[in-house]
């Protein structure tokens, strides 16, 4: 927690004062030393550890907040700072894949563990992918941006046969418009 305060304080210092841009390398170089210093039981730097770099660091206005009053920090980002758009949860893209008719597929947990104890039929099932249900598909759709919900038309896509589900009325492919 204390590391988070120091990091956010240093980041706010680098952002707030462009005139102190010459001090940014100094701040980055002493950031590790400061963290090591502040991780000790004593919150204030002891006189024996005094050095010119630390003195310059303490002159910066934002760093005093790290040793005194902790500054606020936000860990959950709903909208990005640069474009003001929703952000994609990267953990979803690492574990799931969206099919074009709305479902997401994932793999089984523990599919590569303790295989010697498992039967051949179970081992075969562990190699397969699993669909998500409607609630989970809705949740995963909300957690990604529209780029990932868009159909992709790659050449030699191994998931090409599974992107259509024409035997169900709600996901039947529409006739092209001419």
């Amino acid at each position: 927690m204390l590391r988070t305060f120091v990091t956010s304080a240093l980041r706010s210092v680098c952002r707030q004062s462009p005139a102190a841009s010459s001090l940014v390398p100094l701040v980055q170089r002493t950031q590790r030393a400061t963290l090591m210093t502040l991780s000790r039981p004593c919150l204030l730097p002891t006189p024996s550890l005094a050095s010119p770099a630390h003195h310059q660091l303490l002159q910066l206005p934002g760093v005093l907040a790290a040793t005194g009053t902790p500054s606020n920090t936000r860990n959950v980002t709903k909208f990005s700072l640069v474009k003001g758009k929703r952000k994609t949860v990267k953990a979803v893209l690492k574990r799931f894949k969206r099919l074009d008719w709305g479902a997401w597929i994932r793999t089984h947990s523990g599919r590569q563990k303790k295989l010697f104890k498992k039967s051949a039929a179970l081992r075969r099932r562990l190699k397969q992918h699993v669909f998500t249900n409607a609630t989970q598909s809705w949740l995963l759709d909300k957690m990604v941006t529209s780029y990932w919900r868009r159909p992709k038309h790659f050449i030699n896509d191994p998931y090409k046969p599974y992107h259509s589900r024409n035997e169900y009325y709600a996901t039947q492919s529409k006739t092209f418009k001419v």
Binding site: A91, V92, K94, R95, F96, K97, H108, Q136, L139
Partner: peptide, 11 residues
Amino acid sequence: FYLRFPYEPYY
């Protein structure tokens, strides 16, 4: 739910 499963390089 979205953190329970292992990684798979789909994308």
